[in-house]
Write a protein that binds this DNA or RNA. Structure first.
Length: 553
RNA sequence: GGGUCGGUAGCUCAAUCGGUAGAGCAGUUGCCUUUUAAGCAAUUGGUUCUGGGUUCAAGUCCCAGUCGACCCA
């Protein structure tokens, strides 16, 4: 009779295997999810202290340093020979049994161990080599290697617990001393350890990391654990935000928080998200810009003010658009768009210096470098249009003539577009993509931004600039409109064709008198794309907006 | 909204003309006291995104759906 046994081997069930380990740990009186572990050093701090002590020792013992240099040179030759041997074996030229002369290496001189450390982090590699083991842990500063041997640990610990119960992905704590391995890597030789928090699930494959973009966004924590590039970029984003605040605080700007829930979605032309408040039984809009409340602050006497926060636009998603994104808006009374040029240039230079340590930033996907240290170009909108179309009389042409010219230039334009929109299509499609180096585009037509002051020339252009870098609009800035009557006219001209209603409250504020001011906005996500050479806005947003997906579990 | 491409083991990827779904890593069991994607030996693991259809036979072809990516608007 054939007794078909159900397969008792559950070694493939990674979750079950780890649950068994949990049970074994608990049976041995060990808590696999400990309350804490003392952290005296991060990886970076441990490296720094070791190097400082090592340097001091060599200063006091120069002869040891010389011996060590001799040893290291010999060890390097030995390693090279080993690699040559391995290559020859792989090429089939020799077998592992064949004799192969390896260079002699002198005894390694005694160097004292480094400082005592107590550290914690997530295990990301684990190499058991018989009675010795190496692993690497990741903490908030980076990766550090750990080393232990059987005889360092209490009887039975190494074979029964350490080798069997610790998995890649676990968070462990160790105590020991730092030292340099024979390959020169600063390593913690630990004598005491604990599993601080057991991981029940496997990490992504160690070499390729996580590449499935959907999974990267949905499970960003795994991306952060396994992809250093991502870790670095988000650390830089955090520093960029920190340095923006520092820069503005140092110039006496006040940071404020204005509402996300607006009665009127104003300050920009974009479709808003709508939500309903039960208590007041009315609809609210999630803000599409910070502008109108910050100007109320100017009216209120807060002459230097900024907000760095999230805004929401109910529009498409793309490489450059996420429905919720982070915006900086800055307003400075008794300044104007010229003052904003100095401010934004100073700000970006500050970020280059403090965060990136360079003024030269490579462009993603192109063999080009943005040089922020070079003079920033300034160009008038109309001049750029005339240059791009090759038509000195462009602005006296009729709408139909412009449409025909666009067709010749190979630009697709909505045939119903208004006159200024046709021209702006030329700007967005033909000019903006070519503005790689920082360029202030000034004297933009008044139809494009109803909140700015008109240039005194009376030609319908505005005292504004649009800072373009890497083919994208990075920061617009205005001499802000403070005439309540002109402001009302501009709004009324816009309402009807755009989705925003008139913000009467704001106009009342203006009627109380707003000081002349310069104002500026920067899309932080796009700025981070630029400064970190990212390919996509989703690479700069920890948890980009995605459709809900019910987990398979 | 339109077009193109994709979803196969926990992860990274294969699978010829439609003909028994494979490999590396991870896991499991051994060996291994300075490794660096460690190594050696053995071994477990599949609702091929979902639902239909065609066919003797579908990961593969067709239809619909779903979740993404890229390009365009």
């Amino acid at each position: 009779m054939s007794q078909k046994q159900p397969n008792q081997d559950n070694s493939h069930d990674l979750f079950a295997v780890r649950r068994e380990k949990l049970d074994k740990l608990r049976a041995a009186g060990r808590d696999p999810f400990r309350a804490n572990w003392e952290q005296t050093h991060t990886s970076k701090q441990a490296f720094a202290q070791f190097e400082a002590e090592e340097a001091a020792f060599f200063d006091a013992n120069p002869e040891v340093k010389k011996q060590l240099e001799v040893y290291e040179a010999a060890a390097e030759k030995l390693n090279a020979a080993k690699m040559e041997r391995r290559a020859k074996i792989q090429a089939g030229e020799i077998t592992p049994q064949d004799p192969f002369e390896l260079p002699e290496v002198p005894a390694k001189p005694e160097v004292p161990m480094g400082p005592e450390v107590s550290m914690a982090g997530r295990v990301i590699t684990f190499r058991v080599m018989g009675k010795a083991s190496f692993m690497k842990i990741l903490d908030r500063d980076g990766v550090i290697q750990l080393y232990v041997t059987r005889d360092d640990l209490p009887e039975g610990e190494y074979n029964d617990f350490f080798k069997k119960m610790v998995d890649i992905g676990d968070i462990i704590g160790v105590r020991g001393q730092t030292f340099r391995t024979s390959t020169g890597e600063i390593t913690v030789h630990f004598k005491d350890y604990a599993i601080v928090s057991k991981s029940m699930r496997p990490l992504p494959e160690k070499f390729h990391g996580m590449t499935d973009s959907e999974q990267i966004y949905r499970q960003r924590y795994l991306d952060l654990i396994s992809n250093e590039e991502s870790r670095t970029r988000f650390r830089q984003r955090s520093e960029i935000v920190k340095e923006i605040r520092r820069y503005l605080w140092d110039k006496d700007f006040a940071e404020v928080e204005t509402p996300c829930l607006h009665n009127v979605a104003g300050g920009a032309a974009a479709r808003p998200f709508v939500t309903h408040m039960n208590a007041l039984d009315c609809d609210f809009y999630l803000r599409i810009a910070l502008e109108l409340h910050l100007k109320r602050m100017l009216v209120g006497g807060v002459d230097r003010v900024f907000e760095l926060s999230r805004v929401f636009r109910n529009e498409g998603l793309s490489r450059r658009h996420n429905p919720e994104f982070t915006m900086l808006e800055v307003y400075q009374a008794y300044s104007d768009y010229r003052g904003m040029m100095d401010l934004v240039k100073g700000l970006i230079m500050h970020l280059c210096e403090k965060v990136l340590g360079t003024y030269q930033i490579p462009v993603y996907g192109k063999d080009e470098v943005i040089d922020f240290a070079a003079p920033w170009r300034e160009a008038q909108y109309n001049d750029l249009i005339i240059e791009a179309t090759g038509d000195a009389d462009w602005f006296s042409r009729s709408r139909e003539e412009k449409l025909a010219a666009c067709e010749k230039l190979g630009i697709q334009v909505d045939p119903d577009a208004a006159d200024f929109e046709v021209t702006n299509d030329v700007f967005e499609k033909l000019i903006e993509p070519t503005l790689i180096q920082p360029t202030f585009v000034t004297r933009i037509p008044k139809e494009l931004c109803p909140l700015a002051k008109l240039n005194e020339s009376g030609d319908g252009s505005l005292d504004v600039f649009e800072l373009c870098i890497n083919g994208q609009e990075i920061a617009p800035a205005y001499s802000e409109q403070n005439d309540p009557f002109v402001q009302r006219e501009m709004f009324e001209a816009q309402v009807g064709e755009e989705t925003q209603d008139l913000d009467e409250d704001f106009l009342v504020a203006l009627e109380h008198g707003m000081p002349p001011a310069g104002g500026m906005g920067i899309g932080i996500d796009r700025l981070v794309i630029l400064l970190t050479t990212a390919s996509n806005i989703r690479d700069t947003i920890l948890f980009p907006t995605l459709r809900n997906k019910v987990s398979a579990e």
